[in-house]
């Protein structure tokens, strides 16, 4: 019986690894391709080369795209974090059936197909004169990302002890002070996680970008899209690796930041 269950465990483990590979492999294929010495997209056979990375980081166009993507992603992350956090706190404080309906409504940007959002943004941005501008991109991405922040901050608030808020008020602190000194520090991991997700969402967003950017705004995903369509330059693969590395770094950062706040094993005395 013991043998059988340990065999089942082995199968389960193997299955888990297979699924993981299936999920991750397509993303990782960019890594070998980016190291090819050839001028076309291929997996390197005999030798490897960093020439495409050199090309990536010496080309003004690529550098400008990386820089633009970073600016837009940071701007969108900040805006989405502020909006999403305030919204989550507001809904948490009201907390009625009505506010729960509002919450469901606010999650819509995550559910609506991106292509539909993209068309909507295009129509409205034309009227507002926000097409092909940093501000337009930042606002559009922030709108898409705010629900992410709403989710992570709401999760953090669900674990927040409402007695702490009562205690703060009882000790003489009005709402602004209570927010700043008690609520924010307690839900910081949720806010940070939301900010990271918002950053990642904007950082690799392509559908809406294609609709509302034209000449001036050329984000990294858009540059890659054009690169693939116009020629099969492996620099695109190098750019993809950069994209993945930045995304993973952001994720790692959020994990480290939230771990740093979790209680470490500590001595307890009587």
């Amino acid at each position: 019986m013991n043998g059988r269950s340990s065999m089942g465990w082995c199968f389960g483990r193997a299955g888990a690894w297979l699924v993981l590979l299936f999920l991750v492999l397509p993303a990782l294929i960019a890594l070998p391709v980016s190291l090819t010495p050839e001028r076309y997209l291929s997996v390197p056979k005999d030798s490897m080369s960093l020439r495409h990375y050199a090309n990536l980081f010496s080309s003004d166009e690529w550098i400008s795209s990386i820089f633009q993507s970073l600016v837009i992603a940071c701007g969108a992350a900040i805006l989405a974090t502020v909006l999403g956090t305030l919204c989550a706190i507001g809904l948490w404080r009201i907390s009625t059936r009505f506010s729960e309906a509002i919450r469901a409504l606010l999650l819509l940007p995550l559910i609506i197909p991106p292509i539909i959002s993209a068309m909507a943004f295009y129509r409205v941005w034309v009227k507002l004169g926000l097409l092909d501008s940093y501000l337009g991109m930042i606002i559009a991405h922030a709108i898409l990302a705010a629900p992410m922040v709403l989710i992570t901050v709401s999760a953090a608030l669900a674990n927040f002890d409402p007695k702490l808020e009562q205690a703060s008020r009882n000790l003489g602190a009005a709402l602004p002070t209570t927010l700043r000194r008690v609520i924010f520090p307690s839900i910081r991991p949720g806010i940070l996680a939301g900010a990271v997700f918002a950053f990642i969402l904007s950082w690799d967003e392509i559908v809406v970008t294609l609709f509302i950017a034209k000449f001036r705004v050329f984000t990294l995903p858009r540059r890659m899209w054009d690169g693939i369509r116009e020629n099969t330059d492996p620099t695109v693969a190098a750019a993809a690796v950069v994209l993945i590395v930045v995304t993973l770094t952001a994720l790692l950062l959020s994990v480290l930041l939230s771990r740093g706040r979790a209680p470490a094993a500590e001595t307890k005395e009587t």
């Binding site: 009882n170 009005a174 008690v182």
Partner: peptide, 20 residues
């Protein structure tokens, strides 16, 4: 008078100390 203006001390069930 809102709670923060009443100037009453309170010890909560479970204490509600600020964990950070």
């Amino acid at each position: 008078l809102p709670a923060e203006k009443r100037n009453f001390g309170m010890v909560f069930q479970g204490y509600a100390l600020f964990p950070h």
